[in-house]
C-alpha cells in the first residue's frame, strides 16, 4: 500500500475524528446532569425538537406530493423543477433566511398581505423557525421519497386499479406503504437537518430564548458566555446525530 495514499487518508480520518474527540474530552462530565437540566438548555432543546418535528410534518405534507409529481408525472420543465427543489441543498442557509425575509417579512411580497389580512406575522416567531427549517430541510425529504417512488414498481398501482381502487386509494393504500422505508429515511434525514438548522433560522426568526432560540443558536450564544454550557449542548446534538446514523445504518452503510 503506497504511503502517498495512506498518510493523507489517515490525516483525513484524524481531521474528522479529532474535533469530535475534543468535544468528548473537554466535556464537563461531573456537572453534566446538572447542566443538562438547566432551564435554558431544556427550553432550547424542547423548542428544537418541537420546531424540527413541525418542520418535518410540513415537509411531509408538501414534499411527498411534490416527490410524487416529480416521479410519476411527465411534464415539460420537470428537470428544471427538480433542480429548483434541490436549490436549498446548496444555497447558503443565511441566504435562504434573507430570501424568506423578503417574501414573508412584514414588508415582504406575501408578508405584508398576511399581516394586513390575517394579522399573521411570521418573522421572529416560532412559526418562522419552522418555516426556515422546512425551507432548508425539504430537499432531503423530496429527494429521498422521489428516489423511493422511482425504485418502486409502478405496476403495483396498475394492479390496484384493476381491483377497482381509485387513484387516491391507490396512493394511500399501495404506493405509500411500498415506499414506506424510503419515506421514513427521508423524514429522519429531514428532521436531523431541521434540528441542526442555524443560518436561515437566525436570519429569519432571530434569537429569542424560549421563542426562536433553538439548540444550535443556544450553542453559538453560549460559546461567548459559558464555554462548558456550549459543550454540553453540542454533546446533545452529537448524540442525536449519531443516534440517527445508527437508526439508518442499514440504508446507508450496507456496503460495509
Amino acid at each position: 500500500m503506497p504511503a502517498a495514499l495512506l498518510i493523507p487518508a489517515g490525516l483525513g480520518l484524524l481531521f474528522i475524528v479529532l474535533p469530535l474527540a475534543g468535544l468528548l474530552i473537554r466535556a464537563p462530565w461531573t456537572t453534566l446532569p446538572q447542566r443538562l437540566t438547566e432551564p435554558g438548555a431544556l427550553t432550547a432543546l424542547r423548542l428544537s425538537v418541537q420546531t424540527a418535528t413541525l418542520a418535518t410534518a410540513l415537509c411531509l405534507l408538501l414534499g411527498v406530493p411534490l416527490a410524487w409529481v416529480l416521479a410519476r408525472v411527465e411534464f415539460p420543465g420537470r428537470r428544471l423543477v427538480r433542480a429548483l427543489v434541490t436549490v436549498p441543498l446548496v444555497l447558503p442557509p443565511v441566504v435562504g433566511g434573507v430570501a424568506l425575509l423578503l417574501v414573508f417579512g412584514r414588508r415582504g411580497l406575501l408578508g405584508g398581505w398576511l399581516d394586513s389580512t390575517f394579522g399573521v406575522t411570521l418573522p421572529f416567531t416560532t412559526t418562522g423557525v419552522v418555516l426556515a427549517e422546512a425551507f432548508v430541510a425539504m430537499p432531503f425529504l423530496v429527494i429521498a421519497v422521489e428516489g423511493a417512488l422511482r425504485a418502486a414498481d409502478h405496476r403495483f398501482e396498475e394492479a390496484a386499479a384493476t381491483l377497482g381502487a381509485s387513484r387516491w386509494t391507490t396512493f394511500t393504500h399501495v404506493t405509500l406503504p411500498l415506499v414506506a422505508p424510503g419515506l421514513a429515511a427521508g423524514a429522519v434525514l429531514c428532521w436531523a437537518r431541521a434540528l441542526g438548522e442555524f443560518g436561515a433560522t437566525i436570519t429569519f426568526a432571530g434569537n429569542y430564548p424560549g421563542r426562536t432560540q433553538t439548540m444550535p443558536l443556544a450553542v453559538y450564544l453560549a460559546l461567548e458566555t459559558d464555554l462548558e454550557s456550549a459543550i454540553v449542548l453540542s454533546l446533545v446534538l452529537l448524540v442525536v446525530s449519531v443516534g440517527i446514523l445508527v437508526a439508518l445504518r442499514d440504508r446507508w452503510m450496507t456496503t460495509a
Binding site: A160, T162, L163, G164, R167, P177, L178
Partner: peptide, 18 residues
C-alpha cells in the same frame, strides 16, 4: 380501469408485498 368489471392475473402476480 378501476371502473371496469375485470380481474387481472399478472405474469409476476404483483401481489401487494405489504
Amino acid at each position: 380501469t378501476e371502473r371496469r368489471s375485470i380481474g387481472v392475473v399478472f405474469q409476476d402476480y404483483l401481489l401487494f408485498p405489504h
